[in-house]
């Protein structure tokens, strides 16, 4: 039993069996994380570099912790204090790192497709930790894992993804994963932040009314407004965004069903989601963070085995 791919570039390249394998392996690692000794020796001869060309708190710490829990050796690279500022190219940087005998590369980059480019040119296993506005596969996997913990199944489940769909790699990875596993997806947000042909291209429902999405869904995944990727005004103000598209407590309270509220973080409180919802009983935001370590352990473990 193994993955059909040697790199994790995106959910797009995975088949449902791969996703199932990662999720079930993650369950075993979650058990490991409950033990007194939260560490196993599986990857003790594997060296992994965390190459972060873009800021990150959760993902970088989660990957580093996952690597340490698997007994791998880790190297951390932050672009701000590296030779990238002296003009070294991505490929040169990675080739230099690999000549120090590194087996796997975890990479976040602001350019979509950067990990795909690397995968074509270097022999190490590459794990995409977020590339531009393309994909963030481990986030989608941990989201699915967290949903499964609460709802026990993905097939037939209704998941609403609410917010900045256009600039969100979390949204794209989630849409790929959920539709591959048989869930229904609805995207909601301002028309300027939803790609025009997303319905035709990805087979999702589209609404411009958050209340409609909430009434429809079993799970609401709320996304951050990615101001850093918007080079033109796409809505008038954060305050107006909150008034029209923000998730507020009374909207969740008046639903006649129990829904799950998720958020990949970092949260902009009072913009896309209000504090009393983010910290409320429906929220599983911190469970998502906890499950992230188990998911990343599963991905690293399954990709460490390379028969070549």
């Amino acid at each position: 039993m193994k993955l059909s791919t040697q790199n994790l570039l995106g959910i797009r390249n995975l088949n449902p069996e791969d996703i199932q394998l990662i999720l079930s392996t993650a369950q075993q690692f979650k058990d490991v994380l409950q033990r007194p000794v939260k560490k196993v020796p599986s990857l003790r001869d594997v060296t992994i570099v965390n190459l972060f060309y873009e800021n990150s708190t959760r993902t970088r710490m989660s990957f580093e912790l996952a690597e340490k829990r698997l007994s791998a050796d880790t190297l951390n690279f932050a672009v701000s204090n590296s030779s990238t500022s002296k003009g070294e190219t991505l490929l040169d940087t990675v080739n230099n790192i690999l000549s120090m005998k590194v087996d796997m590369v975890v990479m976040r980059h602001s350019a979509s497709g950067a990990p795909h480019f690397l995968a074509k040119h270097i022999p190490a296993a590459i794990i995409n930790a977020g590339d531009g506005i393309n994909e963030h596969p481990t986030q989608a996997l941990l989201d699915a894992f967290s949903i499964l913990e609460k709802k026990k199944k993905l097939k037939g489940l209704k998941v609403a993804i609410i917010g900045d769909i256009l600039h969100s790699r979390v949204a794209l990875s989630n849409i790929y994963l959920l539709t591959k596993m048989g869930a229904e997806v609805m995207v909601a947000g301002p028309p300027t932040l939803i790609p025009k042909y997303i319905k035709e291209a990805l087979g999702v429902h589209v609404t411009y009314h958050v209340s409609e999405a909430l009434a429809w869904c079993d799970v609401a995944n709320v996304l951050r407004i990615q101001l850093e990727r918007q080079n033109q005004p796409l809505f008038s103000s954060l305050r107006e965004y909150n008034l029209v598209y923000g998730i507020k407590k009374d909207m969740v309270d008046k639903l006649k069903k129990e829904i799950i509220i998720m958020h990949p973080g970092p949260i902009n409180r009072g913009v896309e989601i209000d504090s009393d919802v983010a910290d409320g009983p429906h929220s599983i935001i911190l469970n998502q963070v906890e499950n992230g370590v188990a998911i990343r352990m599963a991905v690293l473990y399954l990709l460490a085995n390379r028969e070549n």
């Binding site: 193994k2 020796p41 594997v46």
Partner: peptide, 16 residues
């Protein structure tokens, strides 16, 4: 997860 041949052969884990 304690096997010494993770690099050459992948086994599926069961519950502990």
């Amino acid at each position: 997860f304690y096997r010494d041949d993770v690099r050459t052969e992948l086994k599926l884990a069961n519950t502990t």
